Simulated scan of single mutants.
Amino acid sequence: MTKKTFHWGIIGLGKIAHKFAQGIAVLENASVYAVASRTPKKAKDFARQYNVEFYYNSYEDLMYCDGIDAIYIATPHVFHFENTMLCLRHKIAVLCEKPFAINNRQVQKMVATAKANNTFLMEALWTRFLPSIEKVLELIANDVIGEVHTIKADFGFKAKFDPQNRVFNNALGGGALLDIGIYPLFLALLIFGKPNNIQASAKTGTTYVDETCAMILDFPKNKIAILHATIIADTPTEAFIYGSKG
């Protein structure tokens, strides 16, 4: 029996959208079916490059494209909420690029709307699906390192400074925490769950975004996570998970 091809739509056609389309291209039963950009030439060029059947110059028009199974949101951080809500109101499944939104209030509205419309909603946090993460969870579940009590993790790279670059642009939701700090945070939450207490400190730059942030999270049963993220230095970008057996 032939499997149905899963048709993806994409909102926002920047660098990450290209990576998404390249990933979809290696799958047998999925395709980028329709895309939308508010820059007409970008939509047309993207469609030609990836052999996309439909392209639109407005996100609203994409909502009426028949045959879309889900839409991937690939716009800058500050637009994730409004773009996701647009899709959910039309009962179209959404895979939203990280970070899910700018704040908890937006996330709560997104989740509530998805539930009210019985529509799939997910954050595109790629690290959750790495084989290494699956292996870590397996080792912990099998008590290989004993009871985990401490996590130390960092994520950092030295970005070329440009006030208009999304990572340095406050108006676009820039900063280390939302861009890459979520990766060490995700690992801590995945393994330990919800923290009892969070301490955080940040170094802000001339564009008023957090160029570096450090976090200490306390969890039940005396567990702790020590985390760091920066966009102004290349760091090891690694994680250490300590258990009672090593």
Rank of each mutant, 00 (worst) to 15 (best):
M1W: 10
I10L: 11
I16V: 13
H18E: 14
K19Q: 11
I24W: 01
A25Q: 15
E28Y: 04
Y33R: 03
A34K: 04
P40K: 12
K42D: 13
D45P: 09
A47L: 10
V52F: 09
I68W: 00
A70R: 09
A74D: 00
H77P: 00
H80M: 03
H90N: 15
K91T: 06
I92V: 06
A93C: 05
A93I: 04
P99F: 00
P99I: 01
A101M: 02
A101N: 05
V107G: 00
K109I: 01
K115L: 15
K115N: 12
F120P: 00
A124G: 06
S132E: 15
V136G: 04
E138D: 12
L139V: 03
V144K: 10
V144I: 11
V144R: 10
V148L: 13
D154R: 08
F161R: 12
Q164F: 07
N165M: 07
R166K: 12
N169F: 02
L172R: 05
G173N: 04
G174Y: 01
G181Y: 05
L187F: 12
L190D: 08
L190V: 05
F192G: 01
F192Y: 08
K194H: 09
Q199A: 04
Q199W: 14
D210R: 11
D210N: 14
T212Y: 10
I216P: 02
F219I: 05
P220R: 07
A225P: 10
I226Q: 15
H228Y: 15
A229Q: 04
A229F: 03
T230I: 05
T235W: 09
T235V: 15
A239F: 10
I241C: 07
I241H: 08
G243D: 01
K245C: 06
